[in-house]
Design a protein around this nucleic acid. Structure first.
Lengths: 234, 234
DNA sequence: TGACCGGGTGTACATCGTATGCCTACGCTC
DNA sequence: GAGCGTAGGCATACGATGTACACCCGGTCA
């Protein structure tokens, strides 16, 4: 009865819920995604969502999963091209994550491994194995890449999220820049190299770091690190 | 009146609040740290905490800050020893973080840079600058290290936190291991190398990754990467 | 003496996730 | 068609959380 018009509202589904949640997070940030706000946007009562989603954790997992499901998959590259293929795969992931500012934090906080997440990890793993990397080295390389496989690295100097309101943070004294001459020096240097820019060039930093890592990996691979059976105590 | 004994309770202070919060997090996990639980443990009403802490974010910031303040600072090393000094500094941080399981997640989610955080970053920065790294290269190296400066890297394969209760996660189907042969292969290989072990050898993976990164950095430094003025378009 | 003020108290509110039970419409079998 | 299980949306309610706001008490200082 309270339902203004009993029109043929298309029924909910897990996919529709997840897509609505992603849209809401895109529009208003991840903190705006509460079961109540989400249900409201779908013209439905909050508890209705629980027919399609186990709980809020499952919702977040689903959001991350559908997002990562959108990441492009490359055609099988030639084994000699593994370096470029890895870079392309990771930069493709980076593009997807960059389009959804909430995704970085969401991926970091998720704990379970959903199919799309595993699929992305599997593709990268196959690139290394296909290039002749040993399973052992491949394993270590995946750890070495860490969250960089998702196309992001922690923001060391920038502040993610909104600007810290100036009225807050009164209890802990604001640190004095003069106490950190080294940081000040590299900040000034960066500023001089990119006049007018705010913050660091995250895209450059990411590609730089990825390059250093893949160079190191390539060197290990060439040195037949993989074929040495006994490398540590175990 | 409700205060059982009006004994001379030692007054609260920011330090006492933060130490109590850390102890609570150590004992029962970070989720147990609510303003109410914390106040209860201190024999005080919840709102009393707000006289020493701006809000819950400030509390978390303070916890991280005092924790990082405990990290050991090395004596100034000789410039030729920068690699070992960096490694020791980071492994020292790792030891502190490892002693407080909640710290990893807490550090990741914090956004503001508190004095102790900046101090740790400053010390590392100085190690590179002192070894003759250019400010530019030092800057990139700090980004390259990322969260690894805190002594942890994302857990790719393990599940942090409590075991996922088997009754949950019913909505999204559990993935079939057979769909991920590459991951399965490296997991089986790791299992064969360390029979009876559960999960990955995080300590080894961390040191391995740190070694690859520092090797790459050393090579860049030796190749006088820093002295090339024009390296990209900008 | 009286004003101030640092610090602890009490009450109250908005918001959140979600347990539980009900109600309705559809599709199945007999 | 009669009976009925089931999927999906609804209504209510509970406990927990962060924190705004007003108060009050004991000291210090003019």
């Amino acid at each position: 009865m309270p339902r203004g018009s009993a029109s043929a509202r298309e029924p909910l589904s897990r996919g529709r819920v997840l897509r609505a949640a992603i849209a809401l997070a895109d529009a208003e940030g991840i903190d705006a995604v509460s079961m109540r706000r989400l249900a409201e946007g779908l013209g439905v009562v909050p508890m209705a969502l629980y027919k399609h989603v186990a709980d809020k954790d499952d919702l977040l997992d689903g959001m991350v999963d559908t997002l990562i499901g959108d990441m492009p998959a490359l055609q099988a590259p030639r084994p000699t091209q593994w370096r470029g293929a890895v870079r392309d795969t990771i930069l493709g992931a980076r593009a997807v994550v960059a389009a959804h500012p909430w995704a970085r934090r969401a991926i970091e906080t998720r704990t379970v491994r959903t199919p799309a997440v595993l699929g992305h990890m599997e593709r990268l793993t196959q690139l290394f194995l296909g290039a002749g990397f040993s399973p052992d080295l491949t394993h270590h390389v995946m750890h070495l890449l860490g969250n960089r496989i998702w196309g992001f690295s922690p923001e060391l100097f920038n502040d993610p999220g909104g600007a810290p309101s100036p009225t807050k943070r009164r209890t802990s004294g604001t640190p004095d820049p003069q106490d950190y001459p080294g940081i000040l020096l590299i900040a000034a240097d960066a500023q001089a190299r990119r006049p007018g820019a705010v913050g660091c060039d995250e895209d450059f930093e990411f590609d730089f770091a990825l390059g250093v890592i893949l160079d190191g990996v390539a060197r290990l691979h060439r040195s037949k690190w993989a074929s040495d059976a006994a490398r540590d105590g175990g």
